[in-house]
């Protein structure tokens, strides 16, 4: 905790504003939660490298006053891996969209999780490709409308939490932009976690996903996050097992972190024991 009260302006680059997000987009809430998390952790802005790929969510890297690396579609985790392994003292945060993280970037996602490299991956899941105008993503799920699914999607979706768990991520959590404070608290834990952390945040795209699928405006979509989700293991689940669970699913500190493990390799190699 720092003494100084939180002020947005301490953490953004005014030159970059106004942002590109549509009215009603949930991404700004993720940005707000992230900055509050960084503030409350008392992190030095100079120690943070934010690396992103391509898409609406990926523009977040430019808006924040950290070292920022806006890379290519789907590959942000690979760039962040280079940053982190070469300078482990830096905090690596990687915000990604659902298509960025799990379609084009799916392979990098599971391998970063497998290595347990100390990177915080934030999957801003709006279940659609927004930047390109509303094509379905691997998280849209079946029976949805999109510009590339005029007759409804037949593709099944991923469960980000289950995928991250089985790939070996040592911190896995989910929240929504309706639960901004919960988001912030989870992000604080994820950033502090020494290992690969995955935070899925459900965030609305009223412009494409909402409109195409008749889910209403931003407020109605956020209401949906309130009514369709519940905390892990809550009693509501007994009545309605279809509710999406929120909270921290995995928090494992036993697995060696990758950069730490490599430091041991260096020690061995320097002794000539290789």
């Amino acid at each position: 905790m720092t003494e100084k009260p939180f002020n947005f302006k301490d953490y953004i680059r005014p030159r970059f504003f106004p942002h590109i997000w549509c009215p009603g987009c949930g991404h700004g809430i993720v940005l707000g939660s992230l900055l509050r998390a960084v503030h409350e952790l008392g992190l030095n802005k100079n120690e943070i490298v934010i690396t992103s790929g391509i898409g609406c969510s990926s523009r977040i890297s430019g808006y924040v006053d950290f070292h920022s690396l806006h890379t290519i579609h789907g590959r942000a985790l690979t760039f962040a891996t280079g940053v982190k392994l070469s300078k482990p003292g830096l905090k690596a945060i990687v915000p990604m969209g659902d298509g960025d993280a799990l379609a084009i970037g799916g392979n990098h996602f599971i391998h970063a999780a497998r290595r347990n490299i100390d990177i915080t991956a934030i999957v801003m899941n709006n279940r659609i490709y927004g930047m390109t105008g509303g094509q379905f993503s691997p998280l849209s799920g079946s029976g949805k409308k999109a510009t590339t699914a005029p007759y409804l999607t037949i593709d099944r979706d991923f469960d980000v939490v289950e995928l991250a768990k089985s790939a070996g991520a040592t911190f896995v959590a989910r929240s929504t932009v309706f639960h901004a404070n919960e988001c912030k608290d989870i992000l604080k834990k994820a950033i502090s976690h020494k290992g690969f952390s995955v935070v899925e945040i459900l965030t609305q795209c009223p412009t494409y996903y909402g409109r195409k699928n008749k889910e209403g405006d931003a407020i109605q979509m956020m209401e949906g996050y309130k009514t369709n989700t519940t905390r892990i293991g809550s009693k509501k689940l007994e009545k309605n097992p279809n509710l999406i669970q929120r909270g921290i699913f995995v928090e494992n500190t036993e697995v060696p972190e990758y950069c730490k493990a490599y430091d041991e390799i260096i020690k061995t190699a320097m002794k000539g024991k290789a």
């Binding site: 590959r75 690979t78 760039f79």
Partner: peptide, 22 residues
């Protein structure tokens, strides 16, 4: 530091990231 990545795209990404830290 040496890292075996999951593919050549990832290798290219990793060296660019590492170059930026100096």
């Amino acid at each position: 530091k040496f890292i075996q990545m999951e593919d050549e795209i990832a290798s290219m990404g990793a060296i660019i990231g590492a170059s930026l830290t100096g």
